[in-house]
């Protein structure tokens, strides 16, 4: 008789539903309960690098903004290190590299402030262009969607990025590239995420 493989099976995902804010951002649901909510400060005060703002909309297959979405951000610091034992090196005190944002219930706008990350090692000695890792959950999304945000002022690094180059359809790569602008003299990157349709954002099975 052959031996059985005694692995456990991953717990199945379910949608975060319409009231995800109660659990993960109770202030937005309309009540204060915790001493501190988690995820509002991604980089901390001591982080080196350029301070940037990122903002956008999540848009559904009908072209409407999704107003009940929650996005988590995971990023390296300006030196390309993640705040993790296997993250490649030390990070500044207070740099968590993780954040959580929700949309404005009326407009669907979301935004967050952080520092621009540095390049991170890729596989087989390659170098990945600076990027933010995003995870998107909402009502109607059965399994959280993973995507990446790259920066349009990093065109040389983007052209050599192993993940962008993995996308066979060149005309889909720009869906991952945020556009730099200025707002009150400060750098802001615009990144709209299209869940479905003509401009559908590339999502990853990571």
């Amino acid at each position: 008789m052959p031996q059985t493989l005694n692995y456990l099976r991953e717990t199945a995902s379910q949608t975060a539903g319409p009231y995800v804010h109660i659990g993960l951002a109770p202030g937005a649901a309309g009540f204060d309960i915790y001493r501190q909510e988690l995820g509002w400060d991604i980089a901390g005060r001591n982080a080196e690098g350029e301070r940037i703002r990122v903002e956008g909309l999540v848009i559904d297959g009908t072209g409407s903004p999704v107003k009940d979405v929650l996005i988590e951000i995971w990023q390296a610091n300006a030196q390309g290190h993640y705040a993790h034992p296997e993250g490649g090196g030390p990070v500044e005190d207070g740099f968590r590299g993780w954040g959580r944002v929700i949309t404005d219930f009326d407009t669907g706008q979301w935004g967050f402030e952080t520092v621009k990350p540095g390049s991170v090692p890729g596989r087989n000695g390659s170098v990945q262009a600076p990027h933010l890792n995003l995870w998107i959950v909402a009502r109607g999304i059965n399994v959280g969607l993973n995507t990446r945000l790259y920066f349009d002022d990093e065109s040389d690094a983007n052209a050599a990025d192993p993940v962008l180059n993995l996308i066979e359809w060149q005309n889909r790569r720009p869906t991952l590239i945020a556009k730099r602008g200025l707002q009150d003299g400060k750098p802001v990157y615009r990144f709209d995420i299209h869940l479905q349709g003509e401009h559908e954002t590339v999502f990853f099975d990571v």
Binding site: G61, G122, N133, G140, I141, V202
Partner: peptide, 29 residues
């Protein structure tokens, strides 16, 4: 059958990524 998923589901295939530092790390609390 879960109606909200109709307009909120990607139609293109997910792109499969092999793990890098970006995937094997994560926040700690």
């Amino acid at each position: 059958g879960y109606k909200t998923s109709v307009a909120r589901s990607p139609r293109q295939a997910l792109i499969s990524l092999e793990n890098t530092a970006s995937e094997i790390t994560g926040p700690r609390f």
